[in-house]
C-alpha cells in the first residue's frame, strides 16, 4: 500500500517566485490498484510520479510505501528500494542503447546482486511471455517502438516490484500499439500488480480502475472508474 500525505513540491523560478508543482496532495493506493493520473501539461503529473518513485525529494509531506517513509531512507537505501520495490516505465522507453533486450531486462536484477545466469534466465522468461522471445539479443535501436516499450515493461517487472510507475508509457506509440501496451498493463494488473500510470490522454486514463486528475498541483478529481479493468 502507498500512502501519500501532504505532498508538496515547490520549485524556485528565475525571478525568485515559487512554483508549486504539487500542493498538499493526499491519497492512498491499495495493492492491486491501477491508478491513472491525468491532467494538463504542467499540472504536476510527472513530478508526482517521480516523487512517489523516490527520485525527487518533496518540499513537504511524505511518501509511505509498506509503512516506510521513503524519504527517511538514505540515498543508497532509496536506490535499493527503486531497484527492488518499484518498476519504472518511461515515455521514451529509456533502454540502455548498448545492451541487448535480455541485458536491458536483466539489468535491475543484476544490480540487485542476482547472478547473471539467474537474471538472464528470468529475463528470458519474461520477454518470452511478452512475445519478445525472438528479440532477446537485439539492441533497442533494431526493434520497433512497440517492442521497445514491451522490453521496458519487462525490465520493470524483473524484480517483482510492489508498484509499477509508468510515465506516459504510450506517448511515443501509434494508437494501435498504444492499445496493445494498455492491454498488457491490464493483464499485468489483473495478476495483482499495482500500477500508477501518468497520461495526458483521457481515453487511456479511463482504462484503469481509478483516475486522479491533477490541476495546478492539486487533486481536482479522484474517481473509481466504472467499467475499468476488472
Amino acid at each position: 500500500m502507498i500512502q501519500i500525505n501532504s505532498l508538496t513540491k515547490c520549485f524556485e523560478s528565475t525571478d525568485d517566485d515559487e512554483i508549486y508543482a504539487l500542493d498538499d496532495v493526499n491519497f492512498s493506493v491499495d495493492d492491486g490498484e491501477f491508478v491513472s493520473v491525468t491532467g494538463p501539461s504542467g499540472s504536476g503529473k510527472s513530478t508526482l510520479l517521480f516523487t512517489i518513485g523516490g527520485l525527487m525529494t518533496p518540499t513537504e509531506g511524505e511518501v509511505i510505501l509498506n509503512d516506510i517513509d521513503i524519504y527517511e531512507l538514505t540515498a543508497a537505501e532509496r536506490a535499493r528500494l527503486r531497484r527492488e520495490k518499484i518498476g519504472f516505465i518511461f515515455q521514451t522507453f529509456n533502454l540502455v542503447p548498448y545492451l541487448d533486450c535480455i541485458e536491458n531486462t536483466a539489468l535491475p536484477a543484476i544490480m540487485s546482486g542476482h547472478s547473471q545466469k539467474d537474471a538472464f534466465s528470468n529475463a528470458e522468461k519474461i520477454l518470452t511471455g511478452l512475445a519478445l522471445g525472438h528479440r532477446l539479443h537485439h539492441r533497442p535501436m533494431t526493434i520497433s517502438v512497440g517492442e521497445r516499450q514491451r522490453v521496458a515493461i519487462a525490465r520493470s517487472l524483473i524484480n517483482g516490484p510492489e508498484v509499477i510507475l509508468a510515465d506516459e508509457p504510450t506517448g511515443n506509440l501509434d494508437p494501435e500499439t498504444a492499445m496493445g501496451v494498455m492491454d498488457l498493463f491490464k493483464e499485468i494488473n489483473s495478476e495483482g500488480q499495482t500500477i500508477i500510470m501518468v497520461t495526458h490522454d483521457h481515453n487511456l486514463a479511463k482504462q484503469g480502475k481509478r483516475m486522479i486528475r491533477l490541476q495546478e498541483g492539486e487533486i481536482a478529481v479522484d474517481n473509481k472508474i466504472a467499467g475499468g479493468v476488472q
Binding site: G53, L55, A75, A76, A79, R80, R82, R83, E84, F88, F90, T92, N94, L95, V96, P97, L107, P108, M111, S112, R155
Partner: peptide
C-alpha cells in the same frame, strides 16, 4: 545523460 539517469532511476546510486 539520459542513459545514466535511467540507470539511476532503476536503482543505482550516484556513486555507482
Amino acid at each position: 545523460k539520459n542513459e545514466l539517469a535511467t540507470l539511476y532511476a532503476i536503482g543505482t546510486t550516484g556513486s555507482t
